[in-house]
Write a protein that binds this DNA or RNA. Sequence first.
DNA 1: CTGTTAGCGCCTTCAT
DNA 2: ATGAAGGCGCTAACAG
Lengths: 335, 335
Amino acid sequence: VAQSKTRVTITAVAAHAGVSPATVSRVLNGNATVAADIAERVRASARELRYTASPVARSLVLGRTQSVACLVPDLGNPTFQGVLRGLSRAASGDRYRVLIADSAEAAEDEADLARELRRRCDALVLVSPRMPAEEIAALVRELEPVVLINRDVDGEAPVIMADYEAGIQPLAEHLYAQGHRRLAYVQGNPDSAANADRERGLATFLSRHPDVEMAVVPAGVTFEAGHDAAAAARVTGATGALAFNDLVAMGLLSGLAAAGVDVPREFSVTGFDDIAFARFITPPLTTASVPVQELGEQAWQRVHALIEGKPPAHNVYLRPRPIFRDSTAAPLVAV
Amino acid sequence: VAQSKTRVTITAVAAHAGVSPATVSRVLNGNATVAADIAERVRASARELRYTASPVARSLVLGRTQSVACLVPDLGNPTFQGVLRGLSRAASGDRYRVLIADSAEAAEDEADLARELRRRCDALVLVSPRMPAEEIAALVRELEPVVLINRDVDGEAPVIMADYEAGIQPLAEHLYAQGHRRLAYVQGNPDSAANADRERGLATFLSRHPDVEMAVVPAGVTFEAGHDAAAAARVTGATGALAFNDLVAMGLLSGLAAAGVDVPREFSVTGFDDIAFARFITPPLTTASVPVQELGEQAWQRVHALIEGKPPAHNVYLRPRPIFRDSTAAPLVAV
DNA sequence: CTGTTAGCGCCTTCAT
DNA sequence: ATGAAGGCGCTAACAG
């Protein structure tokens, strides 16, 4: 039962079956017709010797590795985790593996990392790359096939995006429909694309409703940032706030609770992302669900197509789905 | 500026520098002494042609790929995400990459997946494998070097464990010190190793304190399971409950709140894991923090050592750290 | 110190 | 339908 330490090679199988290595290759890959009896003999030998072709050797000769690389800014970020899960499972279905790397949010290292990864793989998936748009465009040309997730750079690379801009609007409309006319946007990182997207969405909303006033409250992307912004959000005179994401919204809720503000009776709050806990907190959070796993799956479809030499298809914008729960309600004094 | 589509090979660099490919290899790998002027010429050529050696070709000839594989049951599980992050960052420090795969909790697929991954990499990290212990032992022998995380199988593979058994005891002792004498353990999956570990820890605790009665309340591993177990936990007559993990504890909290039970005045609750939200809920959760990222880092140390041919070192048991917050207090009626 | 040769393990013409 | 030979891109052993 114990297998010898030396790797069993295609030559060994050939010898065992009394044929040439070429024939073994043909049988195992089904690339050419081989006499039925010989084919069976070869398969039997392969089985007996527990032979599997070396992926490395095949990679070298075929010029493809059956693997794709995925570069994320931080493996600790739940969004990227979801993407990775979707990507990995989808790729797995087509017998591809994924190589991961985490740039630790260092924008300046991304390009080199990407180059290195690309050389080991057949394609590259860049998730929310932090580097400047022009650099991305250049990198994409250099390293194609490349697929971009959550970073909208026009160029040759397919883009898979959660449409934050469109996604935040139903949340604002919901508050409007409930009677809110003074609102606050509790801002994420003002330099980030993710924040800009939401602000664009809100601008559209505002243009549709000239009777709404919206204050921008600087905060950040964390629970603490939301907590600390609670007072500022109240001071604006708003009757409700749209938070950058769920974490910030939850912080806001906590800060509001500490100040004795009753949500949603006295103040409404919306989040963004629909993280796992959004439904479990009190009050359950009105938010927009972002299909992170689908982002990964769609990215795989695109990558796979590119690897097979198909032309790039249309970009994909996945629209977040608003989820109305109990953190939003009509303001006390309807305007 | 535009680079031609054909890959630039070591032969091209050699030609450009007017030397043999072997010399280029020597210069770039620093494996032998080369005349300073020639070396410089080679480096200049390499730079000019933007040459980097093909990792695939090197892998074939060197017999190592500079990559390790990591197999997890579910990339969506926060514990595994933390492990992966630690592993990936540590490996990155030694210029190794990690290939991931997600068995989607299918225990029966793990062995084949592991075999396939191992052939593409220099070593294998198995995180919480679900398959039977004997199979793991056999697989480890077949595929070494292998490192196990959170699955204690004795054999040739180094094991990196979060010590759940030891970790739950300070939580129980804490409740005891506060005066609790009737407790409930809100159980996870009774067939899992993770649950058995905690029960063993509790048994030790009980053997130290014969005056404590502990009921076991079946639940599960999710928020919902905890929520639904709230009534059952109360009915036992316990004044406090140790939950399998934070999710269950939070569900418990929610179920208790719905039933009008004041935590911690009327009932104490502890969790396990110290997930991100444990500190943010009301009341903030007493729990034990599991250093998931360190698990990954330690695993890398072990894997790396094995790859370098060093003998397996001692197993590592990382002790969770108890974190006392406000979900636990003295029972209303001290015994 | 440098070039030549051989080979890592496999697949794919090209003959037969 | 099968085998022989060459080569994917690189490194290592052997000469010189």
